[in-house]
């Protein structure tokens, strides 16, 4: 799953209501050193709400600020869906476990580049479809 801050979501221009992910969620950030930075949920155990919380806490711990915006969210996708979408756009994506300080479940989507807006658009609209809002996770302080 990948953390998507509020300013990389698609929100209603007047009401600010959440409407979906934006392609900006998958543009590479300075933190994406070895590829698209994600957290491997299964590292924390079988799929369950508890491992989403564990993954979110680990991600938060890896941040210098140690805080997540309340309007942020985590978007999750199956590895196969990510790699298959990469193939559609001629990219041989690989998801590799790459622990970082604070987040032992950190992984990277290797061979990912953000130069093709079509790929970013489809990742946002069709692939990362499981959404977990930070404020709904009730993370401990």
């Amino acid at each position: 799953m990948r953390f998507v801050p509020k300013n990389k979501q698609r929100r209603h221009p007047d009401t600010d209501a959440y409407q979906g992910l934006s392609p900006a969620a998958f543009a590479l950030r300075a933190e994406d050193k070895g590829g698209l930075s994600v957290t491997w949920l299964e590292y924390f155990g079988p799929a369950s709400p508890a491992n989403v919380v564990a993954g979110a806490l680990a991600y938060r711990e890896s941040l210098q600020s140690k805080k997540l915006g309340a309007e942020g969210l985590f978007a999750a996708a199956p590895v196969a869906a990510i790699t298959n979408m990469g193939k559609t756009y001629g990219k041989a994506l690989r998801v590799v476990h790459a622990p970082v300080p604070g987040n032992d479940g950190h992984a990277e989507v290797r061979h990912f580049t953000d130069d093709d807006l079509r790929l970013l658009d489809q990742l946002a609209a069709d692939v990362f479809s499981q959404i977990h809002f930070v404020k709904a996770l009730n993370l401990p302080k």
């Binding site: 953390f3 300013n7 007047d14 950030r29 933190e31 941040l63 915006g69 309340a70 309007e71 942020g72």
Partner: peptide, 20 residues
């Protein structure tokens, strides 16, 4: 007004992450 409101929301310090 719509653009100004969105600019403010996009730059909410409480929601800002990393080196963007």
């Amino acid at each position: 007004k719509r653009f100004f409101s969105q600019l403010d929301r996009l730059h909410d310090e409480d929601e800002w992450v990393g080196a963007d």
